[in-house]
Structures are given as C-alpha cells and as structure tokens.
Design a binder for these strands. Sequence first.
DNA 1: TTATTGACGGACG
DNA 2: ACGTCCGCCAATA
Length: 113
Amino acid sequence: MDGGEFHASVYEAVRQIPPGRVTSYRSYHDSGHIALLISMPRHARHVGNALKFLPEDTDVPWQRVIGASGQISSRGPGTTGAERQRAALEDEGVVVQEMRVNLNQFGWFPASL
DNA sequence: TTATTGACGGACG
DNA sequence: ACGTCCGCCAATA
C-alpha cells in the first residue's frame, strides 16, 4: 500500500462515520477507530496526517475524527482548525465542552466496516 | 545517514 | 484530571 492508497483508505473509512457521531485515530477501545479499520493499527499519527491534506471544500467528514480521549486535537498556536472542528461538530448535534466530546454518548466504534 | 517532527496512543506517577 | 515519558513510523531536514 503506497501513500496515496493509505490516504484513500483513511478517507473511505472516515466517510462511514454517521452524522452526529465521532471516532478516534486509534483508540484503546477494542473495536473501532480509523487506523484499525484500515488494518494499520500503529499508524494513528498518519491518519491525522492524511486528514491534514484534505481541501477546504471536501465532503469527507473529517470533523468526526478526534483523539482517543475525546479531545479535539490542537493544530498549534495561531491556528483555527480545532475551532472550526468544534463548530462543525456542534452543527450536527455533537455536544462539545472544553474542546472535548463524551465518547460514551457520541463515540462510534464498529468492529469492522 | 542521523535527527526531528507530528490532527496519536498508552502506561505511570 | 494532569504532566511526563516512551512507542510508533513516514516525511522532512
């Protein structure tokens, strides 16, 4: 699997996340999460990297991928990505408090696709 | 070729 | 709940 296929696999998996639900790059939950769903469980960091390459107008629901602790990841000081993610999630009904989501309520962790 | 860097995750204090 | 370290691995310097 080359880099392009990796990105495509990530996007395909992310598209499966239902509206109003969130999942993680790779979580301690036995089932679910993007890196496991594409059979590359140790590539959590690269899942985030793939999302970084998405254009502004993509239809891939990137906002539904957050950290395993429920945290919306910071993009670093002076960036607005995390804030846009919070707004996008709230728009579809996800409750965000202090930049974090309750995974017990909104988490989506299927065993497979 | 070696060192650093990440939209990360987990163990541990 | 939080900070610190360590494991991870492709890209980049």
